[in-house]
Design a protein around this nucleic acid. Structure first.
Lengths: 220, 220
DNA sequence: CCACAAATGATAACGATTTGCATTTAGATT
DNA sequence: AATCTAAATGCAAATCGTTATCATTTGTGG
């Protein structure tokens, strides 16, 4: 899941939101009306369409288009209105979020959609990991693990792309902020140390899976 | 004038154009939306930004960013529309070209900007710092200093915002990737160590200026 | 199935970063 | 100007991150 088309009425409010997503490694494209959305959807491939329900008219128009391009859609609403929620689903949205929401929540739902798309509607994940950004700790099925800053950011980065294989280059660039050297072993060390901590708390060290020659991936 | 950031809507059409420039000795980086542009502008130094005006909306957004990074901007347009031209200048572009244009013409204009830039640059500062991302070293008026990864990224971050006061919060977030604690001393330490290294090489430790209660700023 | 190369795992040593405490400085208050 | 206080700094110790090295695993071609 990489490229996201964000349809926001107020382009400015989309900016910092989009920036956040961008920081997390997504490529964002923001448009503010259905026609532009149409143009973009037809000329480029997107992995997800996020629509602010405040977009006037055209409600289901872009949806049709998205459907044609086999792109999943998540709608965003400003209210917690149940009717609006039902409406979104009726229109054929794949999921729904009401603002303000946590980026993490969005990511989780994106992952669910992604999996649904790939594995044709399988079990919903029940193991959920809670992250604590302030003390670099995570809690998984009752076990709490405290990592170091770097271990934490690596783990979280992988978690946020669960299922995907993340290359060492990417991790090195985006988490460690340095280039990957020829015989660079330091990612391996962080992974190794993290796995040890997982094992110490009776969690599977295979939460982080190594894909030989390619990188690492997170898997429950 | 070396590194150019090219913002093109259709990435393909940017390719051969970019290739031409590349053949002429420029280092080109092509992106196709404002956010990517933002990311690149914030993480690397460019000497010039070329923007295809066909980039939808966002018109002035990337411009703001480029301004922040002290990078000149030339806009490219598909029409010969005078309004568009005026609009470009209003937005603050340094120059304007309508497609199709001669690469020579572009070069001429780039030189003009360069000269313009150098003049003001010389008036303001004559010292220029060269950065080496691979070994975290910088060269300033003949003196070469090697920093650690973190010191280097902090220094560069401040340098890229020269004149501005950058808050500790921001540095902590964007460079150290952690929250600023109440009695957090680690930025101070990095600054202190960097200053020491500057002094060791007969460079002014006041290149990094502390603004009591606010943060740090870079100043020649 | 074996030999070989390449990738990964793991330990330890080393260097960098962070933390805690003591001290100094800048600015506000009187 | 003397005092007070919050912020900044210096230094040392503890923690964390990186590198060097060797062992182990995995995949490839004979």
């Amino acid at each position: 899941m990489r490229r996201i088309l964000l349809i926001e009425q107020k382009i400015e409010s989309g900016f910092d939101f989009g920036k956040k997503l961008n920081d997390l490694g997504y490529e964002i494209c923001i448009v503010n009306d259905a026609f532009q959305a149409l143009v973009h959807l037809e000329s480029q491939l997107f992995d997800l369409v996020l629509v602010d329900l405040a977009i006037p008219k055209m409600d289901s128009f872009w949806l049709l288009v998205a459907r044609k391009c086999h792109t999943p859609v998540i709608t965003l609403a400003n209210t917690n209105d149940v009717l609006e929620k039902l409406n979104a689903f009726e229109m054929g949205a794949d999921d729904y979020l009401s603002k303000p929401f946590n980026i993490r929540e969005l990511q989780l739902r994106m992952n669910v959609i992604k999996r649904r798309g790939k594995l044709t509607e399988n079990a919903i994940r029940q193991t959920i990991i809670e992250f604590d950004d302030t003390e670099y700790s995570l809690t998984c099925s009752g076990h709490k693990i405290t990592l170091t800053n770097t271990e934490y950011r690596l783990f979280k980065y992988l978690y946020e792309r669960q299922g995907e294989v993340v290359t060492k280059e990417e991790l090195q660039q985006r988490v460690l902020h340095k280039k990957l050297g020829k015989f660079d072993r330091n990612l391996d060390m962080h992974i190794s140390n993290t796995r040890k901590k997982l094992a110490d708390r009776n969690l599977s060290r295979d939460l982080i899976n190594t894909v030989r020659g390619q990188g690492y991936s997170f898997n429950f």
